[in-house]
């Protein structure tokens, strides 16, 4: 357990001291969302209709953008070899990395998303449901992203490749995340969609670190 916390602390320190990485992801998120009113026109009712989807797609792309920071620097400077040699299961390492990744990208994305919803004229009733859906959905994005990030370690053009691998797998998160927001916006209960998102999180929590650890083993072998 102390090893787990040590890795989380190390990742957070690295992220905070390099500073720009985490804030770049947030800026990217805001810019992507801000492009939509320019693209589809500024009519409030159109924006209100698509706001849930736009916010979620922005979050998806922003989470994707930061995936190459997850394992690639450690592979390049050699610290990944030491982490793999450490006396705890690799699954724990992946889980700690995912937690740190979520704290640095997923959590800020989640916190800022109601603000972006406001810019897109989202119904006020949907804010709580958006926050809840993001709280359940963004950790899944980090977990699935870790699988993709470990699979492309050492590959050529890994940045493009990781998007091709990860995006299809994140579609369920997108579907249920948007459905939760839209249900709340038209006055229905978002509960079933939130429960499905929770189920996705519970399934990803043990399975993704397992797959990512297998990929990590072959990457450093």
């Amino acid at each position: 357990m102390s090893g787990f916390l040590a890795i989380v602390r190390r990742e957070l320190k690295l992220a905070l001291r390099q500073g720009s990485d985490a804030s770049t992801v947030l800026m990217f998120y805001v810019v992507v969302v801000a492009l939509f009113p320019l693209g589809v026109g500024p009519e409030p009712d159109v924006l209100e209709r698509i706001s849930g989807g736009v916010v979620w797609i922005g979050a998806l792309l922003a989470a994707l953008l930061s995936l190459d920071r997850l394992f690639q620097p450690d592979l390049e400077d050699g610290s990944l070899d030491l982490l793999v040699l450490a006396p705890w299961p690799l699954e724990f390492l992946v889980l700690a990395k995912c937690l740190a990744h979520w704290l640095v990208t997923g959590l800020p994305i989640m916190v800022i998303s109601p603000l972006l919803g406001l810019l897109l004229h989202m119904q006020p009733e949907a804010y709580f449901s958006l926050l809840a859906a993001m709280a359940l959905g963004t950790p899944v994005l980090s977990l699935i992203g870790a699988v993709g990030a470990t699979l492309v370690l050492g590959a050529r053009r890994s940045g493009v490749l990781v998007s091709l691998l990860v995006l299809p797998l994140t579609i369920p998160v997108l579907i249920f995340g948007v459905a939760a927001v839209e249900a709340a916006a038209i006055g229905q209960s978002p509960q079933p969609h939130l429960m499905l998102l929770g189920a996705l999180l519970l399934a990803a929590l043990p399975l993704c670190p397992w797959a990512a650890a297998a990929a990590l083993r072959q990457a450093v072998a």
């Binding site: 699979l151 590959a155 490749l161 091709l164 691998l165 297998a214 072959q218």
Partner: peptide, 22 residues
């Protein structure tokens, strides 16, 4: 994605294992 991943590595053995996991 599988086809892209399998062919993305310089050593085929590496691509084979990554592709299999995917």
């Amino acid at each position: 994605g599988y086809m892209a991943l399998v062919n993305a590595f310089d050593e085929p053995e590496h691509g084979a294992r990554a592709g299999a996991i995917l």
